[in-house]
Amino acid sequence: MLVALLIEDFILQLGCEIVGMAMRLEPALDLARTIDIDVAILDINLAGKPSFPVAEILQARGIPFVFASGYGAAGLDGSGISAPVLQKPFDVGDVRRLLTAAL
């Protein structure tokens, strides 16, 4: 929850707008199916569940995304998904770099 606040803060600093925020898999899936956005930041772990199904929906919709994870890139092992990973903890520069790369 606190990390979401941090990301929100960084995104606002970068001059972007927060369109939606979800902390659980179900609401995140709903958002991913319907929301109109330029880019998404996905924590790999949503209250104990991997967010990969959300990534698959975004991928299918052609919406770029980056992951955030305490595991780093190793958190994607076995998922079959490749995307930039923000290793926690991170600063606003990291977020800018990865979002720029994703966009």
Binding site: L2, L5, L6, D9, G70, Y71, Q87, P89
Partner: peptide, 21 residues
């Protein structure tokens, strides 16, 4: 060990969120 590392990183990010904001 992986899980511990994950929690430590998450906690650091939480502390980071608290301090910066």
């Amino acid at each position: 060990v992986n899980e511990l590392n994950h929690r430590v990183k998450n906690t650091l990010a939480s502390v980071q969120a608290i301090t910066s904001q």
